[in-house]
């Protein structure tokens, strides 16, 4: 009898899944406006076994430092983070030297400013939001601290269901990578028309991007082939100096910046899951043994 109830529940679940599937098929084609779906990249930190590639994070940091950070802040980044385990893992001496190149405000000093130390946060390029807007044609360059997690990709059915089982969490870097590669010098022929049917008009000072919502982005293409010199001897040996490579590296770096404890979190997760499965097995045996003499 109880067995039959369980069967019913199974049927219900299957029927529910079928209904949801049906609803999803009925979805109107609204995706066109948002542009093409960003392509999934093979991130080293993707999936449950993924970890950051230290060299890639170091290169990504270089791109961030030399290019992005002139407009974008990262106010939650502390210099010390750059030498912490699971990150770019620069040496302490490197981080101290790097920090000393920057100045931070310190009201306890005579001048009100002093060279940064590892405990300090990454200084912002602009003193205020207004100053940042004024310098960027009215657009505010977003802070990078958690930006990689503040962006995502809306997956169609049934992909979003699979994501729960594959633990796909890389929509942010996928989007950033696509955005950096998605610029057009001129509005392409196939640009979506305005809702009134007139051709797409790019506002003054904006740039056309396939992946940016609305396609008109304030940021000029920030990276191009060869715009950053990777140091051959260190992390750049054999790494191409291309837009594709830069955007992968900086996206990976931004993911680390947003989720600095990803590696240790997953490692702990394995220990916890293995423990739970083992413990559940023991509990099941114990429960069965206990109930062995009871008709139920």
């Amino acid at each position: 009898m109880i067995g039959s109830v369980k069967m019913n529940m199974h049927k219900l679940i299957i029927a529910a899944a079928a209904l949801v599937a049906g609803l999803a098929m009925a979805a109107p084609a609204h995706a066109a406006e948002a542009g093409p779906q960003p392509e999934r990249q093979a991130w080293s930190f993707g999936g449950i076994f993924g970890t950051y590639d230290t060299n890639q994070l170091q290169r990504g940091f270089q791109v961030f430092r030399e290019v992005c950070s002139s407009c974008h802040s990262a106010h939650l980044l502390a210099f010390r983070n750059l030498m912490e385990e699971g990150g770019p893992e620069f040496s302490e001496a490197q981080v101290r030297a790097l920090a000393a190149e920057y100045e931070v405000a310190d009201p306890t000093t005579e001048s009100g400013r002093r060279p940064a130390v590892p405990a300090d946060r990454w200084p912002s390029p602009f003193a205020s939001e207004q100053e940042a807007r004024d310098a960027n044609g009215g657009a505010l360059p977003p802070d990078f601290s958690v930006l990689a997690k503040a962006r995502g990709v809306k997956d169609p059915f049934p992909t979003w269901i699979f994501n729960y089982f594959t633990a796909y969490q890389e929509g942010g870097p996928d989007y950033i990578h696509a955005l950096l590669n998605g610029y057009h010098e001129e509005v392409p022929e196939d640009a979506p028309h305005n809702s009134d049917g007139t051709p797409f008009q790019l506002p003054e000072g904006k740039h056309y991007n396939d992946y940016f919502p609305g396609h008109a982005i304030g940021m000029a293409p920030p990276l191009a082939d060869g715009s950053v010199d990777y140091a051959e001897a260190e992390n750049g040996a054999g790494v191409p100096e291309t837009l594709e490579q830069y955007s992968s590296d900086v996206s990976a770096y931004m993911m680390w910046l947003a989720e600095p404890h990803l590696v240790s979190r997953k490692q702990t997760g394995f220990v916890v899951l293995i423990f739970l499965v083992l413990f559940a097995g023991l509990m099941w045996g114990t429960k069965r043994k206990l109930w062995a003499g009871i008709e139920h």
């Binding site: 423990f275 083992l278 413990f279 023991l282 509990m283 045996g285 114990t286 043994k289």
Partner: peptide, 19 residues
Amino acid sequence: RRDFLFVATGAVGAVGAAA
């Protein structure tokens, strides 16, 4: 032998609780 399962389950549970 019968108790072993109970003891093992209890011990593993205690380790988990401490962790």
